[in-house]
Measured scan of single mutants.
Amino acid sequence: AFSSEQLARLKREFNENRYLTERRRQQLSSELGLNEAQIKIWFQNKRA
Rank of each mutant, 00 (worst) to 15 (best):
L7K: 05
E22G: 10
L7P: 00
N15E: 15
E13P: 01
L20R: 00
R12I: 11
L10M: 04
K46W: 13
R9C: 06
W42M: 02
F43H: 00
K46H: 13
E22T: 14
I41T: 10
Q38E: 12
G33Q: 06
L10P: 00
S4M: 12
E22I: 12
E5W: 11
A48R: 13
S30H: 13
Q6M: 06
R23W: 09
G33R: 05
Q38A: 12
L28E: 00
S3A: 04
S29N: 01
L32C: 03
L34M: 07
W42K: 01
S29E: 05
Q26L: 12
A48N: 11
R24T: 06
A8G: 06
L10Y: 01
W42E: 00
R24K: 11
L32D: 00
L20H: 03
S4F: 11
L34N: 00
Q26V: 10
N45F: 09
N45S: 09
R9N: 04
F2V: 05
N15S: 12
S29L: 03
F2R: 01
A48L: 12
I41R: 13
T21K: 03
E13W: 04
K40I: 15
Q26I: 10
F43P: 01
L20T: 03
R24V: 08
R18Y: 06
N45Q: 13
L32V: 04
E36T: 06
L34Y: 01
S3P: 02
I39T: 01
F14Q: 02
Y19I: 12
S30F: 14
R47A: 11
R25E: 06
Q27M: 11
E31M: 05
E16N: 10
N15P: 01
N35K: 08
Q27S: 08
R9W: 05
K46R: 15
L32R: 00
E5Q: 09
S30G: 07
R25F: 11
R47F: 10
A37M: 14
T21R: 04
F43I: 02
A37D: 15
R12V: 09
N45L: 13
A1C: 13
L7Q: 05
E5N: 06
K46I: 08
R47Q: 11
L7A: 04
A1N: 11
R18E: 09
